[in-house]
């Protein structure tokens, strides 16, 4: 019964997302594209944070690495978006493997600060290695790739086509993530978050578990970075800065880190809020600050998380 309902929900969501380009004006298609990209980034971060209990302040480093590698590929290697995407994902996954290998030895606040440090080292590389990365101006001026879809050549420069392209990649990423968190491995991750000693007792290696999650999160952050760089036609050093990691943490907590789709909802809330606030004031920082404080105090499990909790209580109430 439950799985049917889920299936229906999925179908409804997909139908809604697929019909959007035919209903919304161009600007909102683009905002939705950005929300999708950031959703995948935030959900991949949440594999670390919500499921593994590791607060990483350096995810932007992998996000940006993906973006830069994709643009470098398009400029100097192949003109195929698929090659660029693979380069971005593998490259950021590899960097995540190296950094993760060092970072998973620490936890809690020390893990957070350590990832911040490594993320900022990647930022410095992007910012200072001017001959390769273009320095602070970023790396752009590539021609937006085309995709061959069943013999029809489509250009990703078209906002609608790009939206569908992003939708497919993000759905794939989301599917992968949901498979992982619902697998026995995902259960082990959650168990390790609650009590790492017990996991060690039953013979699992907590560090390897965490490292695996770190690499997956890094690679998917890289994939999001590729999409982001394609969307903005540039890879810029800001993509690697800690404040960008902070933005993803904010989205995740906004939506709710305890729910699979929480980060995606958080990303959507963030963009809509930003749109509304900046439309009537340039002092958006003070409004964002007030909203953040209120959300933490009123919705400590995030908006989606708290709503689901309330919904759960109501349903239980009916049964009683």
């Amino acid at each position: 019964m439950r799985s049917y309902k889920n299936l229906f929900l999925w179908f409804f969501l997909l139908a809604a997302l697929a019909s959007v380009p035919f209903l919304l004006p161009v600007y909102w298609i683009m905002i939705l594209t950005e929300i999708l990209v950031m959703s995948m980034f935030a959900m991949s971060f949440n594999l670390l944070f919500g499921y593994t209990g590791l607060l990483s302040f350096g995810q932007a480093g992998f996000f940006g690495t993906g973006g830069y590698l994709a643009v470098l590929t398009l400029l100097h290697g192949s003109t195929s978006i698929w090659v660029a995407l693979v380069a971005g994902v593998l490259g950021s996954g590899l960097i995540a493997l190296i950094i993760g290998w060092l970072c998973v030895r620490r936890d809690e606040i020390y893990f957070a600060i350590l990832t911040l440090g490594f993320g900022m080292m990647l930022f410095t590389i992007a910012h200072n290695w001017r001959s390769v990365t273009g320095g602070s101006d970023g790396l752009g001026n590539f021609s937006v790739p085309e995709v061959d879809f069943l013999g029809v050549v489509l250009t990703l420069a078209d906002p609608k086509i790009f939206y569908f392209f992003v939708l497919i990649i993000v759905l794939l990423g989301t599917w992968l993530l949901s498979r992982i968190v619902n697998s026995p491995f995902g259960l082990l991750l959650k168990a390790a978050r609650e009590n790492s000693n017990r996991i060690a007792f039953i013979g699992a290696n907590v560090r390897s578990l965490r490292l695996f999650a770190f690499v997956i999160a890094g690679a998917l952050a890289g994939a999001s970075g590729v999409l982001f760089a394609m969307f903005n036609r540039i890879a810029s050093p800001e993509m690697l800065h800690w404040s960008f990691s902070g933005k993803v943490i904010l989205m995740t907590l906004l939506g709710g880190s305890g729910v699979f789709f929480g980060p995606a909802v958080g990303a959507a809330i963030f963009f809509v809020l930003e749109h509304i606030i900046t439309s009537f004031t340039t002092n958006w920082m003070i409004f964002l600050g007030i909203i953040l404080v209120l959300l933490v105090l009123l919705f400590p499990s995030g908006v989606l998380g708290s709503l689901l909790e309330t919904w759960g209580r109501i349903r239980k109430g009916h049964k009683l």
Binding site: P25, Y27, M30, S136, D137, G138, N232, S236, E238
Partner: peptide, 28 residues
Amino acid sequence: KSDVGIRVIRKLVYEAGVDAVIGLDSSG
């Protein structure tokens, strides 16, 4: 920030329907 700059210019052109864009401080 570059990404915000691109977003608001798209907003100005597509949403507000401006006839021209003026500005930009940061070289990035």
